[in-house]
Design a protein around this nucleic acid. Structure first.
Lengths: 198, 198
DNA sequence: ACCATAATCAAACACTTGTTCTATAATAAT
DNA sequence: ATTATTATAGAACAAGTGTTTGATTATGGT
């Protein structure tokens, strides 16, 4: 009973992480409030103090967006390039890793990886067979965004859509049909495309 | 005189990068102002608009710390990003350089530069408005390859074709017509495409 | 010298945002 | 049941912040 009702503290922390990932800044107390469904800013402050006590975040000064995620082990010098992902969340197991790419720190966070695109189902979105896409691992994707999903035990890149509240995976290529997954498994959000023409 | 006074635009961009790296958020206009040594917030706004026009940042809404660094700042080493190239071979003269990007060595060589794509004349080749293309400077391009050419004193990206031994510049977009240049000026060959989706 | 454009400033305004204080539910402990 | 603790709400304030407007000072071209 208590188990599946994720407690708000956790929700706050996750929201902050995700928000930071998307927006290059941490949320305001009011944004957090509305995200977790409480109406008072002081409630959020209450949570933040707790998270701070537990060492997850720190708050310095009174300027805006002053939450700082600790231990954010941001920045990784090398990110792996993965090929087809089979079954489950991508492990960085040797057999999956095509190679490594050195990257600049500030844009990339732990958990990011590059995925080699197979097939041309996204060609109208300018994502071609053989391209590399940068994937940020996150369970949250908004409709309209392009992401990596698990379908029948394999990773696939599609645009997320919504039809009557149900998720649709939209290939950007007239030759392919939308996919209506019974269960949506999100691996991550595609945030960049790299194509080597040589 | 002009040389050692690093221009403010660059300073702003660098400050934002650095600030983001340190603080997990982008700075406020006032913080930027004091960092680069100007006293007016509107001066900063002036710079931000410029940086936005050049595609380095985006600003959405009027909430606090709304600057967002675009830039698929992959990779090590620095190579210049050029905007429209006017007249002649691109010099790395200040006025041409939009900024710098850290890049990985193995993909990039001396003389390479990134060019910000204008327009959608190559969209069927998966090269969209706003993309960055990596250009290797070379006078030699083979038919079928995509390159950067000078047309009427401006740089343009097209696929090279051959008709009866005469060069044609082919836009990969049905809405545009091929160009039959009297004189073919090749700036370089496009060897990669980078698109930032965030 | 004159004009156009680019760069910068100062001030003011409205909206955001962090903080604090008090009050009230909900829950747990006694 | 009574009490203590935990969660949540609401309002209000001061400071922070983005934006705009108008003016002023370079700078560069003719």
């Amino acid at each position: 009973m208590d188990e599946n009702k994720k407690n708000n503290l956790q929700k706050v922390l996750e929201f902050i992480k995700d928000y930071l990932d998307r927006n290059q800044k941490t949320p305001t107390v009011r944004e957090i409030a509305s995200a977790i469904g409480v109406s008072s800013t002081s409630t959020v402050v209450y949570y933040l103090r707790k998270l701070e006590k537990k060492g997850f975040i720190s708050i310095e000064g009174k300027k805006s967006r002053n939450i700082k995620l600790k231990e954010t082990a941001f920045l990784r010098k090398q990110i792996p390039i993965l090929g087809l992902i089979r079954a489950g969340i991508p492990t960085y197991a040797e057999e999956n890793i095509e190679g490594y790419l050195n990257v600049d720190d500030f844009l990339f966070q732990k958990g990011d990886f590059l995925l080699r695109v197979k097939g041309d189902s996204m060609k109208d979105a300018g994502i071609f067979d053989g391209d590399l896409v940068l994937v940020k691992q996150t369970p949250v994707i908004n409709p309209g965004e392009i992401g990596v999903f698990m379908i029948d035990g394999e990773s696939t890149i599609k645009q997320l859509g919504l039809e009557n509240g149900h998720p649709v995976l939209i290939p950007k290529n007239r030759d392919y049909s939308p996919i209506y997954p019974k269960e949506l498994v999100v691996i991550g959000r595609v945030t960049a495309v790299i194509r080597d023409l040589d």
